[in-house]
Design a protein around this nucleic acid. Structure first.
Lengths: 126, 126
DNA sequence: CAGTATCCGGGAGGATACTG
DNA sequence: CAGTATCCTCCCGGATACTG
């Protein structure tokens, strides 16, 4: 049992358990999660539309990523009993809220991409 | 300019190459990267101080994470030739800038952690 | 169309031991 | 103190094939 004292940073314990940062940002860790949120932030999309939008995702990972996001409440999945069936994915209010804080990060990435690539090149040169 | 062929989201092409989001957010993907940035945002810290702050990181991963962050220009490493040697890690301006956009994400995580855990529980029940 | 099912390789990351 | 150096395990994610 851990009775270690709580170290707080940004109001969040760094201990492994009950750490929101690890729990939530762990989701960001996935290769496709953030990309998917951004895609669905544009507009609700169907399975095949997402495949076309992100050409290099495998079918397996697309399904799995969507399931994960659905499980955590970011994404809603609606099935229309047409033939053949069509399924539409959309951001929930929670997902949209998440995308709102994700966007600045995306913008930052674009703005500083060059600086980071330069830093890498300099580091690797040494 | 929104073309159907060139699909842009948040001003970033979704194609694998030259995508800042994938390049930068890929770094976020690491298990310890964001945690380390947050830690160093508090104040510059030495190697052993970081170990104590994040108890469950392995020596190997601490070194590797710091190297990665240094390589990308987020972190500066300063060695003081004392005996035994001491090394201080601090955020660069780039790193601090990154932390600024990371903080809202951290705050969001804390604020919605309960909601996400609830969503998971509900999903798993079904 | 929107998925499962299965197999598989590579890399992330942990444990341990050693060092200047 | 601040690291290297190995070894090893797990699981992420790709490839492929099959289905309602």
């Amino acid at each position: 049992m851990d009775e270690e004292r709580m170290i707080l940073i940004n109001g969040c314990s760094f201990s492994a358990e009950n750490c929101p940062v690890r729990d939530v940002l762990g989701n960001v860790g996935g290769k496709w999660n953030t990309l998917m949120v951004q895609a669905l932030a544009e507009k609700p999309m169907r399975f095949s539309a997402l495949r076309r939008l992100i050409p290099d995702i495998s079918q397996r990972m697309l399904t799995q990523t969507l399931r994960d996001l659905e499980r955590d409440g970011y994404v809603e999945r609606r099935v229309f009993p047409t033939k053949p069936p069509s399924v539409e994915y959309s951001l929930t209010p929670l997902g949209a809220s998440f995308n709102a804080v994700l966007e600045p990060l995306v913008a930052w990435s674009a703005a500083h991409h060059a600086a980071i690539r330069d830093a890498r090149a300099r580091f690797d040169a040494a």
